[in-house]
Design a binder for these strands. Structure first.
Length: 832
RNA sequence: GGACGAUUAGCUCAGUUGGCUAGAGCAUCUCGUUUACACCGAGGAGGUCGUAGGUUCAAGUCCUACAUCGUCCACCA
């Protein structure tokens, strides 16, 4: 069958994907007969089940798929494992918004009904996401598809919780937490965002009996002050340190102790700070040190609690205004200044955060526990460690390598300053905390207690708790998983864990390094006593053509991957994101860029078309056509300089591309393939193949087609990881037996790399280019055959007469000596 | 306030352990439909690699300072 004139991606892509999927080749179990020794695993970062794929996902999927396809072709046991994340808080927010539009709320529906609704919503999104992942060409193993809130993974989560609880690494306690009054939930430290705002800095005295004035932007929290802190070296205030005052602050009695704290900056405000242990992280530390009373002022609804007189039940801002009015009328307000400060807001709904004390569950980062895995203990050097210590060690020691390397610093900094991780959330959608209460008793377990009267904790777990287990929870045996009551037992009886863990590469965007990557390291080192992955590859942000982050709120800046795939083909989209980009760097994407790579796919296609059309009447034996895998370079013998040159070039290409892929230089590898295809193979060798006797029926001609076929087949294999659809389609057109996806990755044949041939041919290229340029400058008719004389020191130029004549449109004569010359290249003299 | 990254042709970016006469794509200009491809071919123009020093036989690449942009972290009441 003949290839059509142009490559029309949308006519082929879905069918090709179906072929891959039906072949079962993406499931490593089906390729066992090849006897691979190495395994290669990527747990694909699960997209949130809230929406559809955007270009950021496409970039990630592409890089992951390039690695997977390359490794599969190398013969490694390759697993690309797909899945979705339930994204607790994000999903609940979206569903709640939908309910609000319909005039109802989760509270009106009740927990059960709400969860059912959310489940349906998630199911719908999951199937959209999966189809889009297919559209992007991901060669993942759908038989192992996972979901963070599946029954299986939920059980893993409960078991992990129980184990950590038993080890004392999970505890319940009252601590100041970031509280979002809108979500009515806690937030982890890194789920808090900051927004600059203009604020007023009020300077006032609590009362006339208290000697010091303080400055604050939040006077309403001062209702809960139990101390005033000053710098111990501040001469103004030294005499007050240690004294306690009973004051009346806007009608509310306060007992204030003056304490000394080194952190207090005497230059700022009045140099005296009101300490509010219940509603400030910094103040709560001071309170702990100084044994201060913690007095709650603000409730979980964001309103002033009862017991504060006329301020009770007011929203914080209303209370603030009332308090300022009162201070003014009492003559206590000394100053109010406009300043800029940062407001902490919820990363999901952008509501102002209230730090407040609350009873929550935490993961202890600095508590010692014992390692059990002898291999890890040996490498680490001791048995006792903390989650923080072992996680720092994993990257410092090189057990985990981060690419680009400079992100390791960011990781260390974050890890070193990590506080205990608050994991309970007051949400409905998510993993319910596996703790039950009865009177004053508490029971923690993976199953609910047998006897009656126990009530389960109302809260759910932080969504990152379950995704932290992703690399291995997805690999645990799923058959009869309910029978396992012990996590260790389950791990031991899971062949996939043995075969595929630790995973090879974690490929994701750098913004998720803390949220997710760091937590996988923490949790996996704890439960499996091994690293979750050996390498972390971080890609950058995909920006619009002006370098701005694409954002849903500005739809005009967004490039929709599915739309682009329809228009230009998935291969073009993949190439446009990966080529000319290095790890960690953000990349700018534009439709124009994608169109450029559509042209490349078409170029590749048309080289195939040329080969097909020309070999049809070349009477090559079946063995020489593209129908076999006789792709070893030993089967071709080079007869001409051009043969030697292109064979040398492709072997160099194999070497370099392989090396680049091994070292995560995807952009560079892609560019080399692009250059070779267009500017070496198409522009030169294909053109030469058209020239008699190269393109004729003579022996040289037939041989050059054999070489062309060999080069092209090798190239298709090399390009396949980057542009899987077009290469697979061409492979199919040429009637090859099996799919390209499992073809053997080409091997470099060092003997065919010949510097001399490359150098000689470069000179011929240079000569042809120089003649063309001279023609143009001298305004020669394009079709006119020019007679030229060349004086050359050796036989090289003479031996390439046919090529030079045809490609430069000349009739070349070699002479011994030239008196005058029009052109000089190296030691060649040319006369027109 | 701290850390990290970027700064290379009009635009978007590559450039691996220093070896470069600094590359590509797009855009632009000239010419051309030659037996794959106009989603094409040929040729041209366009750069003191942010600035100032330093190391070196050799610096886009390494070091120091500065400037501009970006990202992350912390957050001072």
């Amino acid at each position: 069958m003949d290839l059509p004139k142009a490559y029309i991606p949308k006519e082929y892509e879905d069918k090709i994907y179906k072929k891959w999927e039906d072949s079962g080749y993406c499931n490593p179990d089906n390729l066992e007969t090849r006897g691979q020794a190495r395994s290669f695993t990527i747990s694909m970062p699960p997209p949130n089940a809230t929406g559809v794929l955007h270009v950021g996902h496409t970039l990630g999927i592409t890089i992951q798929d390039i690695m997977a396809r390359y490794r599969r072709m190398r013969g490694d046991k390759t697993l690309l494992l797909p899945g979705t994340d339930h994204a607790a808080i994000a999903t609940q927010n979206v569903v709640e918004k939908m309910l609000k539009k319909e005039g109802t709320s989760r509270h009106k529906l009740g927990r059960e009904k709400f969860l059912e609704l959310t489940k349906n919503y998630v199911e719908k999104n999951k199937s959209t996401i999966n189809n889009q992942t297919r559209k992007m060409g991901a060669s993942c193993d759908w038989s192992r598809e996972a979901y963070t809130l599946s029954d299986k993974l939920s059980r893993v989560v409960s078991m992990q919780f129980k184990q950590m609880y038993d080890d004392g690494l999970i505890y319940q306690g009252t601590r100041i937490v970031n509280w979002c009054p809108r979500c009515c939930s806690t937030l982890a430290d890194d789920e808090v965002e900051y927004k600059e705002q203009s604020a007023k800095l009020y300077t006032f005295k609590y009362s006339n009996v208290f000697p010091l004035a303080i400055a604050t932007t939040r006077p309403e929290t001062k209702l809960g002050d139990t101390a005033v802190a000053v710098n111990p070296n501040d001469k103004r205030y030294q005499k007050y340190i240690g004294k306690t005052y009973q004051v009346d602050f806007v009608g509310v009695p306060l007992k204030l102790k003056v304490i000394a704290e080194n952190e207090i900056n005497p230059e700022f405000g009045t140099g005296a700070v009101g300490v509010t242990p219940a509603h400030s992280f910094a103040d709560s530390l001071m309170a702990e040190k100084n044994n201060l009373e913690v007095k709650k002022v603000i409730g979980q609804d964001g309103k002033i609690l009862a017991g504060f007189g006329k301020y009770s039940n007011l929203k914080t801002k209303e209370a603030r205004e009332k308090i300022i009015e009162k201070l003014k009328s009492d003559g206590l307000l000394e100053n109010q200044a406009d300043i800029k400060n940062n407001l902490s807001i919820c990363y999901r709904c952008h509501t102002e955060i209230e730090p407040l004390p609350s009873l929550q569950w935490f993961v202890a980062m600095n508590k010692e526990f014992a390692l059990k895995n002898p291999a890890l203990i040996k490498k680490y050097g001791k048995k006792e460690t903390t989650l923080k210590e072992i996680s720092l060690w994993a990257v410092k020691s090189g057990e985990i390598k981060i690419i680009p390397e400079y992100f390791a610093k960011t990781y260390f900094h974050w890890m070193e300053n990590l506080r205990d991780w608050c994991i309970s959330r007051q949400l409905w959608f998510g993993h319910r905390i596996p703790a039950w209460y009865k009177n004053n008793e508490i029971y923690v377990g993976s199953d609910k207690p047998k006897n009656s009267g126990w009530v389960q904790d109302e809260d759910t777990l932080d969504t990152w708790f379950s995704s932290a287990l992703w690399t291995w929870s997805t690999l645990l045996e799923r058959k009869n998983f309910e029978k396992f009551n012990d996590l260790k037992e389950w791990v031991k009886n899971s062949p996939d864990i043995k075969n595929f863990h630790p995973t090879s590469v974690m490929e994701t965007m750098h913004d998720i390094l803390f949220f997710w990557v760091a937590r996988m390291i923490i949790m996996t080192l704890y439960s499996l006593n091994e690293v979750p992955f050996k390498t972390v590859y971080l890609h950058g942000m995909v920006c619009d053509e002006h370098g701005k982050k694409m954002s849903k709120s500005r739809p005009e800046t967004c490039i929709e991957p599915i739309e682009m795939s329809q228009k230009y083909g998935t291969d073009a989209l993949r190439l446009s994101m990966v080529l000319s980009n290095a790890a960690g760097n953000s990349t700018r994407l534009s439709e124009q860029k994608i169109a450029g790579f559509r042209n490349f796919a078409n170029k590749l296609w048309n080289i195939g078309r040329f080969i097909q059309l020309s070999t049809n009447n070349k009477q090559l034996t079946t063995n020489d056509k593209l129908t076999t895998d006789s792709c070893e370079s030993s089967v071709v013998s080079c007869k001409t300089l051009a043969d030697k040159w292109i064979t040398s070039r492709i072997n160099n290409l194999i070497k370099e591309v392989t090396d680049d892929l091994e070292n995560f230089r995807f952009g560079l590898a892609g560019e080399k393939l692009y250059d070779f295809t267009w500017h070496e193979l198409a522009d030169w060798y294909v053109e030469i193949a058209k020239i008699p006797p190269y393109g004729g029926s003579a022996e040289v001609g037939q041989n050059s087609y054999k070489i062309l076929i060999f080069i092209y087949k090798t190239l298709l294999k090399l390009v396949h990881p980057f542009a899987p659809f077009v290469t697979e389609k061409i492979w199919e057109y040429f009637g090859n037996g099996d799919l390209l996806i499992i073809e053997k990755w080409p091997q470099t044949d060092e003997k065919k790399i010949t510097g001399q041939a490359e150098q000689d041919f470069e000179l011929i290229k240079e000569l042809i280019t120089a003649i063309r340029s001279w023609r143009k400058e001298n305004k020669k008719e394009p079709k006119e055959i020019l007679k030229i004389q060349i004086a050359a020191p050796d036989k090289l130029v003479g031996s390439q007469k046919e090529i030079i004549d045809k490609l430069a449109k000349v009739d070349l004569e070699i002479v011994e000596k030239l008196v005058d010359k029009d052109l000089e290249i190296g030691n060649l003299k040319i006369k027109f």
